Computed example of a mutant assay.
Amino acid sequence: MERKLESVKIEGKEVALLADFPVRFACMEHFDEELDDYVNDFEAAPDTHRAELIEDETMDKRCRVCGEPAQIALLKEKGL
């Protein structure tokens, strides 16, 4: 699933995000496909983190492809 946010908490630290880039989630099986889609859709490689480290209980942390629980979060941090 996908959301555009200004920031997220990762391991207790507030991380600023680039506004034009969404936060997406993927399971390990579909990670390569989601990574390719992110690069194709936004012409930029995303930063990746373990999905469990994203501290936002309101986010739908399921794989966009299959709906299974995600292991990887794809996002674009400011300053990186």
Rank of each mutant, 00 (worst) to 15 (best):
L18W: 08
M59F: 13
E11M: 10
E55S: 03
N40I: 13
R62P: 07
T48C: 14
R62K: 13
T48H: 06
H30N: 03
R50P: 14
R50M: 15
Q71Y: 11
V39D: 10
E57D: 15
R24G: 07
C66L: 00
M28L: 15
A70N: 02
K78G: 07
A51R: 03
K76R: 14
A26E: 01
G79F: 02
L74I: 05
A73K: 03
P46I: 02
A70H: 02
G79P: 04
E29F: 05
V15S: 00
T48E: 08
G67E: 00
P22C: 06
K78R: 11
C66D: 06
H49D: 13
E11R: 10
E33M: 14
E55I: 01
M59W: 08
A16Q: 12
T58G: 09
K61Y: 05
C66R: 00
L35D: 04
R3G: 01
F25L: 05
F25P: 01
K13I: 05
K4I: 08
I72D: 03
R24W: 11
L17I: 01
I10C: 00
D36M: 11
E34V: 13
V15N: 03
K78Q: 13
E14Y: 02
V15C: 05
P22L: 04
V8G: 05
V65A: 10
E43Y: 14
A70E: 07
A16H: 07
P46G: 03
I10L: 05
D20I: 06
R64Q: 14
H30Y: 05
E43Q: 14
H30W: 03
E6H: 08
G79V: 01
K78C: 09
E52D: 15
K4G: 06
G12R: 00
V23Y: 04
K13D: 07
Y38N: 05
C27G: 04
A16G: 04
R64L: 12
F31A: 07
K76M: 09
L18I: 10
R3T: 09
E2H: 06
E33S: 15
D20F: 04
A51I: 04
G67K: 05
